[in-house]
């Protein structure tokens, strides 16, 4: 029991992944600043931001529902749970349970859902616009994302558990080395970008356009919790992709190298693209991305 709590709160779970995620957020800000020929913030900037939010007043708009203050915590708890499950599976394959891949897929939707619920319960029209955009985006990227995950399940002989997926990659090479794996990886990278809410797909939080969108009414600690959830997602999503696609060698050193590689791809996409309108991103996900995912699915079932 004590070990489970430790796993959830400290080592592979909340505290560890929050530290890594906040550092990754700093890397993102620093690289962005260097690309724009600026100096950028110091490495502890994101930690200070979170502490600062705890010093601020929490304002609840008139007529807001109780879910306004509740939803950020639900999102954070679910992402921390994903971090714990993934971390334990990487540490040893025996610690998983049957169907944990499905559980993680559901848990990864909850942060987006909590953002939508929080925005709708704030009774702000701009927040509603942001929430409806986020909802359309979720509908957009979940379809290709789940197709890609199914393709990877087929490749590892129908296992819906992280342990056997990692084991089959250890025996037969990483999934990304095959044709279907490579196609799926491309699709998954774009879906991850949308899940993280980063630039080509950040219409729901467009600062210049709808002033923070879904987060507009949040202040103080709930806003900090949303930022923390985003930082945790920046740790969890790349690790999830590593487990699915690059699972051949998961020793700490290789894990770190792969994580940094995926982080570089995310930051590159973020810094070289303008913001897409919501209809453009929906068309992007239901058009080319779903097509690629379907091709990968067919190829995977043919054994390529």
């Amino acid at each position: 029991m004590l070990k489970t709590i430790f796993n959830y709160l400290i080592f592979p779970g909340f505290l560890f992944s929050a530290c890594i995620g906040l550092l990754a957020c700093w890397v993102d800000r620093k690289v962005t600043a260097r690309l724009q020929w600026r100096v950028g913030p110091p490495w502890y900037q994101n930690f200070l931001d979170i502490i600062k939010f705890s010093a601020k007043e929490i304002i609840v708009p008139e007529g807001a529902r109780s879910t306004f203050l509740l939803s950020p915590y639900i999102g954070l708890l679910s992402v921390a749970l994903v971090a714990a499950i993934l971390g334990m599976n990487i540490r040893s394959a025996a610690e998983g349970f049957i169907g944990d891949l499905i559980v993680v897929l559901y848990l990864l939707i909850i942060p987006a859902a909590s953002l939508i619920i929080g925005a709708f319960s704030s009774r702000n029209p701009l927040a509603s616009v942001g929430a409806s955009r986020e909802m359309k985006l979720v509908l957009g990227y979940e379809l290709p994302f789940i197709l890609v995950v199914i393709a990877m399940i087929i490749k590892s002989k129908g296992a819906i558990q992280f342990g056997p997926i990692i084991e089959s990659q250890m025996n037969f090479g990483s999934n990304i080395a095959s044709v279907s794996g490579a196609l799926s990886f491309i699709v998954a990278i774009f879906c991850m970008q949308a899940k993280l809410g980063f630039v080509p797909f950040d219409a729901s939080e467009a600062e210049q356009e709808i002033m923070g969108g879904a987060l507009i009414e949040y202040s103080g600690m709930p806003l900090g919790i949303f930022k923390l959830t985003k930082a945790l997602m920046l740790y969890v999503m790349p690790v999830f992709l590593i487990v699915l696609f690059l699972g051949k060698d998961l020793t700490p050193l290789f894990l770190a190298v792969k994580y940094i590689g995926i982080l570089v791809i995310i930051i590159l996409i973020k810094n070289t693209n303008p913001r897409m309108r919501i209809d453009q991103s929906l068309r992007f996900f239901w058009g080319p991305m779903t097509l690629l995912a379907l091709i990968a699915l067919v190829l995977a079932s043919l054994g390529l």
Binding site: V39, E207, L215
Partner: peptide, 11 residues
């Protein structure tokens, strides 16, 4: 001024 952690807020 992002060196000192100063950022622009939308809301």
């Amino acid at each position: 001024v992002e060196r000192f952690g100063i950022t622009l807020a939308g809301s």
